[in-house]
């Protein structure tokens, strides 16, 4: 039961973008170790602006 709740929480965080920064850090650690990652605030700004560039919603 607890594990189900946990995985639901994971899905919810993933869907909403709540964990976007953590995923970015992970990606950064794997691919671009040389430079320092962006701060959470800066990353979130860029992420949000990028997300809304283009047709994102339908009728």
């Amino acid at each position: 039961m607890l594990s189900k709740l946990k995985s639901f929480w994971r899905v919810l965080r993933r869907l909403s973008g709540d964990d976007a920064y953590e995923r970015y850090l992970q990606h950064h650690a794997e691919h671009h170790q040389a430079d320092t990652p962006l701060s959470k605030e800066i990353f979130f700004r860029q992420w949000q602006d990028e997300k809304w560039n283009g047709v994102k919603r339908c009728c």
């Binding site: 919810l12 965080r13 709540d18 976007a20 959470k40 605030e41 979130f44 700004r45 949000q48």
Partner: peptide, 14 residues
Amino acid sequence: YMRSFRPGQVLEAS
């Protein structure tokens, strides 16, 4: 809230 007060805390804010 999610931009300045608690950046990136999407679920809290929602």
